[in-house]
């Protein structure tokens, strides 16, 4: 009885340990496994998030990052019109929660969004995911982490905090800080508080229309 208890305990600890090691091994390995071109999924967050994301990705070397595919929320209809590449593949995901939606129904819509994200990431198999919020990116990041632990795709996550954030991270930023592979901020103030982040100090050009 007592020995069964001990063996069970050890088994659980080992199992947890294996998962932690596996997750962290997956999170840590990077430069060696990347060989261009890297399939890149850019998540468009709508509004100001999309503006920033398009600005960030404008000068990416397309011989390194290819093909580039995009993802937007079903309710976001304006982002697609602003893409530089009219022929780009654009995926859609349902929103986890609409503004003003009640918490009970948002539980179901979150589960639905997560379910949808799992299939989408499995289908795309991105090597790299670029996102900058808002909360709609979370199901995709969870899905990417899952498929990476399973070994289906590399799905490295790059999160760029909004230029508007100087002193405090957004909620999405706080959640992704610990498991994004590359976490980018624009301000020295934030960088000092979050030493794991990388500072892109010079990104300031943010014109509404060009």
């Amino acid at each position: 009885m007592n020995s069964a208890f001990v063996t069970g305990g050890i088994a659980i600890v080992l199992f947890v340990r294996i998962i932690i090691v596996w997750v962290f091994r997956c999170i840590r390995r990077r430069t060696e496994t990347n060989s261009p071109p890297l399939k890149t999924l850019v998540i468009l967050g709508s509004g100001g998030h999309t503006t920033e994301m398009l600005q960030l990705t404008k000068q990416l070397n397309r011989s390194f990052y290819a093909p580039v595919e995009y993802c937007r929320a079903t309710t976001d209809t304006t982002s697609v019109m602003r893409l530089p590449d009219r022929l780009a593949v654009v995926h859609t995901i349902p929103r986890a929660r609409e503004v003003g939606q009640s918490y009970v129904t948002s539980l179901f819509s979150t589960i639905y969004a997560q379910w949808h994200a799992m299939f989408l990431i499995a289908k795309i198999r991105p090597g790299l995911i670029l996102c900058n919020g808002p909360g709609t990116v979370l199901p995709l990041c969870v899905a990417a982490l899952f498929w990476r632990v399973v070994g289906w795709c590399p799905g490295q996550i790059v999160f760029v905090e909004s230029y508007c954030r100087v002193q405090t991270l957004s909620l999405t930023g706080k959640l992704l800080y610990f498991w994004a592979d590359l976490f980018v901020v624009h301000w020295e103030e934030l960088h000092r508080q979050y030493p794991r982040s990388k500072l892109v100090d010079s990104f300031v050009r943010r014109q509404k229309d060009e």
Binding site: R30, P36, L56, L182, K198, F203, V204, R206
Partner: peptide
């Protein structure tokens, strides 16, 4: 206000990916 360097983020990303 200094003009933005559009290549700052691509450089960082290339570096991260080992390209």
């Amino acid at each position: 206000h200094p003009a933005g360097d559009e290549f700052a983020f691509p450089r960082l990303l290339d570096d991260f990916c080992g390209f």
